[in-house]
Amino acid sequence: MSKLWTLYYREMLEAVRSYKLIWIPVVFIILGIMQPLVTFYMADILAASSNVPAGFMDSYEMPGAAAVMAQALGQYGTIGILILVLGTMNSLAGERSSGTAELLMARPVSPVSIVVAKWAANFTVLIIALVLGVAGAAYYTVQLMGGLAWGAVAAASGLYALWLLCAVSLTLLFSAWLRGPAAAGFALLLAAGMSLAHSLLPSRTAWLPAALPGMSASVLAEGRVTGGPMISAALLIVACIAGASLLVRRNKLPN
């Protein structure tokens, strides 16, 4: 347990020293506050661009606070996921290619604790980024659009965090096997594939983790929540950690 803590501490120290703990939250905050700001000032922005046909803006209706919040979270499903995956891709691949894994693995540490420490560190970065981003988005949404149900915002953010964590865990799994960029590519491909499958066949794939973003949006619109996607996401994450540990046990040396 103390070794796990030592490894986790090292990961967090690296996140701080490499500024990962700063730039990822900053991107999330910008993404989050852009949505309510752009929505609110849409009329002014279009007016300033001067070549809008007369009467075009008459049909524009300001969306409600909950809808804006859902859109803000939706931003994390594209650019947010990309940023997180890029931030995770070298977790294990980098240690292997630089050769630091060789010294690490010559010490009495289990592959599971190495993978869990890395997973937990990336999870910490994700949570910090998401909490700050959501807080920024919620602040401007409340200021500009009106009140939000805080419980629903928290639940929606939690569901979204779970989906993002699936992508991060997949990246970690591929990072234990492939080089960093390839790991990022495969993880994004798999996440996008799941999303695509879910949007094409929503009824048959309602249990996929890819259903989580949709569920997150519906929570804000006071929709209902089903357990299936949460369970499958948890299983996927556990499988990723287990798989990564097995791969780390095999691939210790620079390749």
């Binding site: 070794k3 090292r10 120290l13 050769g99 060789e102 010294l103 010490r107 009495p108």
Partner: peptide, 19 residues
């Protein structure tokens, strides 16, 4: 041997000893 270049020598040693 490859080390974490962003760590100090002492930090690495303590890390290694704890592990």
């Amino acid at each position: 041997p490859a080390f974490y270049s962003w760590m100090s020598g002492l930090e690495y040693m303590i890390f290694a000893a704890k592990l």
